[in-house]
Simulated assay, not measured.
Amino acid sequence: MLQKFLFAFGLIGLLHSCQSTNQILSKSDKRAEIMTTIANDETMSKEMMGILMKSKSGKMMMMKEHHAKMMEKMKEDPEMMKNMMSEMMEKANNDDAMMSGMCKSLMENEKMMNMMEKMKEKKIEKKEDHKEHH
């Protein structure tokens, strides 16, 4: 009887400790304190980065940050952007999987599709202008 009571009491304690973790993290001041502690400790920071890189949301966050930095660099240096785009297109022409991935990404991005449509219209206009001059 005592063993059953202790087992039940231990199980309730275990379940309560899981719930209290969520309760602690739901309080923004405590959550900020925990994150600051992790950020200020080299070992814990490395552990957290490992956990983030294993999670889907962590990978997405890192990719978005990397993408934003690349876009900023390309805005600052249009020649670099032109060179990178040329290199990327060259590689994509030789790699079916990369081309397929790029096409899928472009089709999912409305801004890119609009930009490509505008580029296509300009190209058609240039061809028509060229024909009128000959």
Rank of each mutant, 00 (worst) to 15 (best):
M1Y: 07
M1N: 08
L2P: 01
Q3F: 07
Q3G: 03
K4H: 05
K4Q: 11
F5G: 00
L6V: 07
F7M: 09
A8I: 08
F9M: 11
L14K: 05
L15D: 05
C18L: 15
S20Y: 03
S20M: 05
N22I: 08
N22R: 15
N22L: 13
L25E: 07
S26Q: 15
S26T: 06
S26W: 05
K27A: 12
D29G: 09
K30V: 10
K30I: 10
R31G: 02
E33C: 09
E33S: 14
I34L: 10
I34Q: 00
T36D: 02
T37H: 02
I38L: 01
A39M: 03
D41V: 03
D41I: 01
D41K: 02
M44R: 08
S45E: 08
S45Q: 13
S45T: 13
S45Y: 09
M48C: 05
M49I: 12
M49N: 14
M49V: 13
M49Y: 11
I51T: 06
L52E: 01
L52G: 03
S55K: 05
G58F: 01
G58Q: 01
M60D: 15
M60K: 13
M60R: 13
E65D: 14
H66Q: 13
H67I: 03
M70A: 06
M70I: 03
M71Y: 02
E72C: 01
K73Q: 07
K75I: 00
D77Q: 04
D77W: 00
D77A: 03
P78N: 11
E79T: 07
E79L: 05
K82N: 09
K82I: 06
N83L: 11
M84W: 00
M84N: 00
M88T: 00
E90A: 08
E90N: 09
K91S: 02
K91V: 02
K91T: 02
A92Q: 02
N94H: 14
N94K: 15
N94W: 08
D95A: 03
D96N: 10
A97S: 14
M98C: 03
M98R: 01
M98E: 02
M99G: 01
M99Q: 03
S100R: 11
G101K: 07
M102L: 15
M102N: 02
C103F: 09
S105T: 12
E108H: 12
E108C: 12
E110M: 04
E110H: 06
K111N: 12
M112I: 06
M113W: 02
N114K: 10
M115A: 06
M115I: 07
M115F: 07
E117H: 12
E117M: 15
E117N: 13
E121H: 07
K122A: 10
K123N: 13
E125A: 09
K126T: 09
K126I: 11
K127P: 02
K127D: 11
E128P: 01
D129A: 10
K131P: 00
E132R: 05
H133D: 04
H133N: 10
H133V: 06
H134W: 11
